[in-house]
């Protein structure tokens, strides 16, 4: 319609990445004692298109996760190359706990921004009376 949902779509893209990162962290923490398990995380790739001044997404890798069109950054899931312990497991539980908290906070921030943006739109519509 007439409304520009670009910012909202970008925030949605961010939420999608945070959801996945939370799941990866859950997987890492669950497998902290599994022999041979390698820690998983997102690698953020972001290219600043200098000419246009916008963020453009890199899509060279077939495993690349799609973001919403024209959104900020793309991300791929990679295995950590951190050296493993005796059983081959390389999960660092302190790092994972930190990621858990940090990711949760960033998720909540995006939710907040989303809500405020949506309410802003709604208010603008309600006030544009006669």
């Amino acid at each position: 319609m007439i409304i520009d949902y670009t910012t909202i779509d970008m925030l949605t893209g961010d939420l999608d990445l945070r959801v996945l990162r939370n799941e990866l962290t859950a997987s890492n923490i669950a497998n902290v004692d599994t022999p041979g398990y390698k820690s998983l995380d997102l690698e953020f790739t972001r290219i600043l298109d200098q000419a246009a001044g916008r963020l453009r997404m890199m899509t060279t890798d077939p495993r690349h996760l799609p973001g919403p069109a024209d959104s900020a950054s793309g991300a791929t899931v990679i295995e950590s190359t951190f050296p493993g312990r005796a059983d081959g497991n390389n999960v660092q539980i302190e790092d994972e706990m930190l990621k858990l908290t940090q990711n949760s906070i960033k998720y909540n921030v995006s939710i907040q921004l989303l809500t405020r943006k949506l309410n802003g739109l709604k208010n603008a519509l309600m006030d544009a009376r006669r």
Binding site: T12, L15, L114, M126
Partner: peptide
């Protein structure tokens, strides 16, 4: 994804208000 569902509802609501 729960947030997708909620956002669809919000967008429909905004669209409706715009129509109003």
């Amino acid at each position: 994804n729960l947030h997708h569902t909620l956002l669809s509802l919000e967008k429909a609501d905004i669209s409706f208000k715009l129509m109003m």
